[in-house]
């Protein structure tokens, strides 16, 4: 293809997300050349990891034309539950003083299971009771947060931050394998699994069909309710994993963990090309969406700009991304 002016413009527009990410990187490097280092990139990827896992969950919801306001609170509950079950036997202030040290996999699976359950409930309420997803997940968010506070306040803990996690559990968030932080490896594996699921399985394709048109999907013999429950459940499980990693990464957990993460996740998905109308969304898009937000947070701190500005930038980016997307789609039709 000849590189005429209009062609270049088209290539830039088609890959706008990558261009924006690259552009931000270049600007940051120009301002502060030290930005270009493995440590910085590693830190950004580590910070992005939990956010990415949560955003992937959110993507499922957006693809089926749903909404999920419970994400952050489910992350918080999963973090507290995992944390309470992952304390080392020598820690002085244990949540369950008599609990022996459990293998790492136990708190992880229980937390993911709790997340899955919360998502499943969301799905049932949306699909079977036909409650608007906005309201259904708002309700579940409150219920989940309420239970989390009750659990967190159980004696002898009485709402003190959890800590003293076992080495194995902390290694999920802080350890490294072959020099690559474990948390990045976990996020990468999740991303690949979600990508393959979405692109190469029948259920993955049916998520898009249901999101594109529930009525048409139903005529085509797709069990629409089942697919909706599946999407919310998968999202819940990913939120659960996100909570586990958040506790492991920070070495602590409180009932306020995860607050507001659902909004960040929705924003990342939308910037990454998911449509709030359903039927559209790609894993690479969501990955770049998450990275853009984390590069902004980290980069602005790195070059010494007030963190208050970060929110201003994020807000502007969300609006610009959607405004551009609308225009791009309009041209196509």
């Amino acid at each position: 293809m000849e590189l005429t002016q209009s062609n270049i413009k088209k290539i830039l527009m088609d890959n706008l997300l990558y261009v924006v990410l690259l552009f931000m990187f270049v600007i940051l490097i120009i301002i502060s050349p030290a930005f270009l280092s493995w440590i910085v990139i590693r830190d950004i990827l580590m910070q992005s990891s939990t956010r990415l896992i949560i955003a992937l969950g959110c993507m499922f919801i957006l693809i089926v034309a749903g909404a999920d306001l419970s994400g952050g609170r489910v992350v918080g509950l999963a973090a507290v539950i995992a944390g309470s079950l992952a304390q080392s036997s020598t820690f002085y202030n244990k949540f369950f003083p008599m609990l022996p040290e459990l293998p790492v996999i136990v708190p992880v699976l229980i937390a993911i299971g709790i997340g899955l359950l919360a998502g499943f409930l969301n799905g049932i309420i949306v699909a079977k009771l036909e409650v608007n997803p906005f309201i259904a997940t708002l309700g579940i968010a409150l219920v989940v947060y309420g239970f989390n506070c009750l659990y967190f306040n159980l004696p002898p803990n009485n709402s003190q931050p959890l800590g003293g996690f076992t080495k194995g559990f902390s290694a999920l968030g802080g350890g490294a394998t072959l020099g690559i932080p474990n948390i990045i490896i976990i996020a990468a594996v999740c991303t690949i699994i979600v990508y393959l699921f979405q692109r190469k399985t029948c259920l993955g394709k049916e998520l898009f069909a249901v999101g594109g048109s529930k009525d048409a999907a139903r005529v085509s013999g797709i069990n629409v309710e089942k697919i909706l429950v599946l999407a919310y459940s998968l999202a819940g499980a990913l939120y659960g994993l996100g909570g586990v990693l958040e506790a492991a990464r920070t070495g602590s957990a409180t009932s306020t963990y995860g607050a507001g993460y659902e909004m960040d996740a929705i924003a990342s998905c939308v910037v990454g090309g998911c449509s709030l109308m359903g039927g559209v969304g790609s894993v690479p898009g969501v990955v770049v969406g998450v990275l853009i937000f984390n590069v902004i947070s980290y980069g602005l701190t790195f070059i010494g700009i007030s963190s208050y500005w970060q929110n201003v930038f994020k807000g502007v980016i969300i609006i610009c991304a959607v405004a551009l997307d609308v225009r791009k789609n309009r041209k196509k039709n």
Binding site: E206, F208, G212, A217, S275, V280
Partner: peptide, 15 residues
């Protein structure tokens, strides 16, 4: 109730 408007011809045919 017919087309899945956002999907490709292939995805529509194979659904």
């Amino acid at each position: 109730t017919g087309i899945l408007g956002k999907l490709s011809i292939t995805d529509n045919m194979l659904v």
